[in-house]
């Protein structure tokens, strides 16, 4: 049972890492950031100028930003 749990933990680690390196966790990070931002905003009176993007909007916005700000790849 502990072996199985260990394997499962290892597998979860690999998936977590792969997703991180490929950048799949970008939306989660964005949502977390937005939540903490809203918390502060609520303290100082709240604002609605940065509504939370939906997942689809976020990914569109991400590639559109790459269009405007290209990054080189190495040789």
């Amino acid at each position: 049972m502990t072996l199985l749990a260990g394997v499962r933990r290892g597998a979860r680690g690999v998936v977590w890492y792969l997703k991180g390196v490929l950048g799949e966790d970008a939306y989660e990070k964005y949502v977390a950031h937005h939540a903490s931002e809203c918390e502060t905003d609520a303290e100082v009176g709240g604002h609605a100028e940065h509504p939370l993007l939906t997942e689809r909007e976020f990914w569109r916005d991400q590639t559109d930003r790459q269009d405007k700000n290209p990054q080189g790849r190495c040789c």
Partner: peptide, 24 residues
């Protein structure tokens, strides 16, 4: 939360390596 976002060091190592390693 987009361009500036704190990233786990091990993940960022993978990111950075993937960006610098190419055909050269």
């Amino acid at each position: 939360g987009k361009d500036f976002a704190a990233t786990d060091r091990r993940v960022l190592f993978g990111h950075h390596f993937a960006a610098i390693a190419g055909a050269g």
